[in-house]
Computed example of a mutant assay.
Amino acid sequence: MGRILGLDYGTKTVGVALSDPLLLTAQEFETITRERARALRHTLVRIKEICEEYDVELIVLGYPRNMDDTEGFRCEDTLKFKGLLEKRVDIPIVLVDERLTTVYADEILEESGVAKKDRKKVIDQIAAAIILQDYLDNK
């Protein structure tokens, strides 16, 4: 049985989390960065590599609805990214509501004593882990 990959898609980064083999817990994995928002080739290649290396059977992608439940430009960007990713990997991709995950991730880092300047390096991974853990807990 394969693992589940969690993704927190952003303008310049994608936070990546991976489930354990038993699909019980989500662990932060890495943050994929890019110079320009539209320069996605390297990001897509890296996600495909992770999927192959860890026998990923499902991808959970954070879907950034607005607080009033509307869908803004970030949802549009996420759907475009999902479409590009679907062309690269033959793995189902599920959208999961990700409202407030980055805020929650920042609170976790603050409570853990991580300096504000160091949070940027890991916040997307933690947000991806929160998205994935939420999916694992509710599936």
Rank of each mutant, 00 (worst) to 15 (best):
M67H: 10
E86Q: 10
E49I: 12
T78R: 02
P92A: 07
C51E: 11
V89N: 04
M67C: 07
E76V: 09
D55E: 15
M67A: 14
D55T: 13
L84V: 01
D90W: 04
M67E: 14
V89M: 06
F73D: 14
K82Q: 13
K48C: 11
P64M: 06
E53V: 12
G83I: 02
N66I: 05
D77M: 12
R65F: 08
C51R: 09
K87F: 01
F81I: 03
K87R: 14
R88Q: 14
D68Q: 07
D77T: 07
E86G: 01
K87I: 02
I50G: 03
E71F: 01
P64E: 10
G72P: 05
K80T: 11
E53T: 15
E49G: 11
R74V: 04
K82C: 07
R88A: 08
K82P: 00
F81G: 00
D77Y: 03
I47L: 14
D69N: 15
F73I: 13
E76F: 03
P64C: 07
E52K: 14
G72S: 09
Y63W: 12
I47A: 07
T78S: 09
V89H: 04
G83N: 10
E49M: 13
Y63L: 13
E53I: 12
R88M: 12
G62Q: 07
T70P: 05
D68G: 05
